[in-house]
Design a protein around this nucleic acid. Structure first.
Lengths: 329, 329
DNA sequence: CGGAATAATGAAAGCGATTGCATGGATTCT
DNA sequence: AGAATCCATGCAATCGCTTTCATTATTCCG
């Protein structure tokens, strides 16, 4: 016996296929007894509407694409979860694409997604603006953590939280800082560096810029090594993963944290809480970020020609154990 | 101007839609000049075949579902990547479902996936066998890390690697061990416990069983506390995340690792390398696991009535810094 | 050189759903 | 009572593509 369709059900209930379809989509248009009979038959037969057929006529795939540069970066799973949860509430599924850190793959995948999804959410720190714009032409699209005038975007703004971090360290007596910059191609990295520079200038403290370093654990170790060659007593790492690398390098060399140096991360991924000492960092509002991205995208999908929306959500500074008073030395 | 279809292209090239379709799917059936003309027109118009329409007639969605219990568990991103990479090579996309640690959600999602995918890969440690069987009825399905006679499965067998771990500790002079058991509902947890018990019995060493503990960082901290109340000098944690919790708890209480206690994890997630001290653990062959799962699933899809396949891939013991000689005390 | 095999293409029938329009019976209004 | 509504339902077209079968045009071989 082949897969049940609305026709099998229609036949079984002695009604037309149209009525079956309506029973599912506009139940109020079908009389109660008939509707229930149809539902019963559907359940009995294990009927599942063919999304292909529906998609063909409605033009909707009920699916959104999500392109991330590197799913193994602990930042993204949280985002994926938030996005998926929100999408599900809006009746959509999520197609996940891991670009495996290749900018080329990012745009290539966006192109391939076109025909399978209603829209895409792209976290693409690396690709060029032009490539991105081109890839998204005519496809509802929301950018994550990377603004671009023509395309909608949802970003996390850590500026004020980084100010807070600076103040926190300043209060602890630190006067000489190191900025361990992230990948130069990353918008977020530039943005964070800028915020820290601005704060340091405003505060009139010394700031040594190091890097750029790769946003990996290894990159963090290099950053840690570089940090030790400066006189800075406190360091801003690009993100938590980098900060963990720094911590590991310092620990390896017998430098105590926060005794001798203070380190702050950014993003507040799981790692930040599990590492020893736990990381002082900036919490990104993942759930909000994801939910907002989906909502903005949904709006883009419903209003194809609509204006690009830009929303920025603030990060929140959180002090833990990797920062403390400046050592007497 | 509406979306380009094979008809737009056909018209533009003065051929029939059938020819256009063939130009894409069976190029050898179309004469070279016509084919090239079609391709050129397609490129020019930005044509993308509608997967809904194609899926409707072919009955294939070119998409596989992947259900994971908790995407934020660092074990899964690696798996997701491996699976996605392999799927892409086979021409399929991956639809990711994060069940958010709910067994009910796991089976519910499998049911919903039915109509949208060709088959599913399910990493579902929690759901009952019966529920799983029922959910997968008539849907090609591969289980990950959980065998079930009727359904295909791909598992990672850590038995021999855990023996190696035991031997490694034994060689370092340890004679009293603790087993920090994982969730009792998890097949993998039971399996690992069993392997360790068997090894301990065979070796004639003392083994204290503690737990079960949740497979989270917090659970690990509890396990660490429990561990300190025993005389064991070495502990087997259920997985790396738990092991990290143990490490953190011990560090918090000033117990040195590996000086006073040795700890081994399991899975070798990113965390294992970034934590201090780095974790002695068992490396799961993620890439193989993922690739194999996709291949087995593909076979299931192509041979609907086919027999269930079961493959087990061995984990590999890797010694790092969380294990060392038994302290003199 | 005739007939058969071969190659390139077109016509048309679905795939399974949605949906605008038509229909007929019941209900309501004047 | 006849007209006007309204409700529940059926008919049939349609979405974009694949695929079978039929139709030419071309080539091959004895």
């Amino acid at each position: 016996m082949s897969k049940p369709t609305i026709y099998s059900i229609a036949q079984r209930c002695g009604v037309s296929a149209a009525t079956v379809s309506r029973a599912f989509n506009r139940p109020e248009l079908v009389s109660a007894p008939v509707r229930e009979q149809i539902m019963a038959a559907a359940r009995e037969l294990g009927y599942q509407p063919s999304s292909a057929a529906r998609g063909l006529v409605t033009g909707r795939a009920e699916m959104i694409g999500l392109v991330v540069p590197d799913i193994t970066n602990p930042f993204f799973p949280l985002l994926v979860r938030a996005i998926q949860r929100t999408a599900e509430r809006m009746g959509s599924s999520v197609m996940l694409i891991d670009a495996e850190e290749s900018a080329a793959a990012e745009v290539r995948h966006v192109a391939q997604l076109r025909s399978r999804v209603d829209g895409v959410i792209v976290a693409s720190p690396r690709s060029s603006s032009a490539a991105l714009r081109e890839a998204a032409r005519g496809l509802p699209c929301v950018l994550l953590n990377r603004p671009l005038r023509e395309l909608s975007s949802v970003i996390c703004d850590n500026t004020s939280a980084l100010f807070d971090a600076g103040e926190h360290l300043h209060k602890h007596g630190h006067r000489s800082f190191a900025l361990l910059a992230g990948p130069s191609a990353s918008w977020a990295a530039g943005r964070r560096s800028q915020a820290i520079r601005r704060w340091a200038r405003g505060r009139g403290v010394e700031l040594t810029e190091l890097g750029p370093f790769r946003a990996t654990f290894k990159g963090g170790r290099q950053a840690g090594a570089a940090l030790l060659e400066t006189g800075a007593t406190a360091a801003f790492a690009f993100d938590d993963l980098t900060a963990c690398g720094v911590l590991a390098e310092l620990a390896g060399r017998g430098v105590s944290v926060p005794g001798e140096r203070s380190v702050v991360g950014c993003d507040d991924v799981l790692l930040a809480r599990t590492v020893t000492p736990s990381l002082t960092t900036v919490t990104a509002p993942m759930d909000d970020l994801g939910a907002t991205a989906v909502q903005v995208l949904t709006r883009q999908i419903e209003t194809p020609g609509g204006p690009a929306e830009h929303v920025a959500l603030p990060g929140v500074f959180v002090a833990r154990d990797s920062t403390g008073p400046r050592s007497a030395s």
